Amino acid sequence: MRQIILDTETTGLSANNGDRLIEFAGVEMIDRRLTGNNLHLYVNPERDIPDEAVAVHGITLEKLKAMNAPVFAKVAQQIADYIRGAELIIHNASFDEGFLDMEFSRLGMPTTRTITIDITDTLKMARDRYPGQKNSLDALCTRLEVDRSKRVLHGALIDCELLSEVYLAMTRSQFSLVDELMDTANTSNNPAGGSQYQIKHSALPIVTPSSEELEEHEAYLQALDKIVGAPCVWRQWQQDTEDKSV
């Protein structure tokens, strides 16, 4: 599963009224693991950048010209090839998707959804999970204990890196330990991608945890309780088991 954590910075808020894209960043994740195959580009918007936009991201037209930033037409195909066939993970996806579609349409290129396989909006995910609460990227970092100390101004690349941690934290409960063990087994048994070996199941040994391991386990459960705002699934299962044994 190939996913791209994506973010953009722009000259303003309206893709339909003359604002342009000035920064693009994508962070690649395959099977929930960051690969390091990132794409980060600055773009000359071919227009001025209002002071209120500069106050948000700190990018001026002078800086872009000094670094010889290309116009979007020069990097459009590079961006399209990078996101092709991937699921995009975007916070407030309609904003970034709107700007990419506007820039692509100016060149007669397909829309973002045509190029990719899906777009997941983490803002919608957060609103569903934390209704009535602040769900900005900053707020989610605080709630999920993601370190954002390096984020002084909005920047596409650092925002992607933070969002990747937020996304993994919000979706962690969807992926079981068994899935991860099976993935590891399949990879080690089948490194060349050929036919898979059959995994034989046998009785598993029972290992009694030490007191230190039990303390670490309890600390981890408390962290999960804090993230979901209620007893985590493990505690619910443990309580059900105790109730049935009484």
Rank of each mutant, 00 (worst) to 15 (best):
I5D: 00
L6G: 05
T8H: 03
E9F: 02
S14K: 15
D19H: 04
L21W: 04
V27S: 01
D31C: 06
L34G: 12
G36E: 03
N37S: 15
L41N: 03
V43R: 00
V43S: 02
V43M: 03
I49V: 14
V54T: 10
V54W: 09
V56G: 05
L64F: 08
M67G: 09
N68D: 11
N68Q: 14
P70G: 07
V71S: 12
F72N: 02
K74I: 09
K74L: 10
A76H: 00
I83Q: 00
G85W: 05
G85S: 04
G85V: 08
E87M: 07
E87D: 09
E87P: 02
I89P: 00
I89Y: 01
H91E: 01
N92D: 10
N92V: 06
A93D: 04
F95V: 07
E97K: 08
G98S: 06
G98Q: 06
F99Y: 13
L107A: 03
M109A: 07
P110N: 09
P110I: 08
T111E: 08
T112Y: 03
T112S: 07
T112I: 12
T114G: 12
T114K: 15
I115T: 11
D118Y: 15
D121N: 10
T122L: 05
L123R: 02
L123P: 03
M125K: 13
D128K: 15
D128E: 15
Q133G: 06
K134F: 05
D138N: 15
T142N: 14
L144T: 04
D147H: 04
R151V: 06
L153A: 15
L153S: 10
H154G: 04
G155L: 01
A156W: 04
L157D: 05
C160S: 01
C160R: 02
E161S: 05
S164T: 10
S164W: 04
Y167V: 00
Y167F: 08
M170N: 00
R172V: 11
R172N: 09
V178W: 11
D179A: 09
L181W: 08
T184N: 11
T184L: 14
N186M: 05
N186K: 07
N186Y: 03
T187D: 14
T187A: 15
P191F: 04
G193K: 03
S195A: 15
S195M: 14
V207D: 12
T208I: 14
S210K: 03
E212G: 08
E213C: 09
E216G: 09
E218N: 07
Q222V: 11
D225I: 08
D225A: 07
K226E: 06
K226S: 07
I227L: 12
G229R: 06
A230H: 13
C232V: 07
V233M: 09
Q236A: 13
W237S: 14
E242F: 14
K244Q: 10
V246H: 13
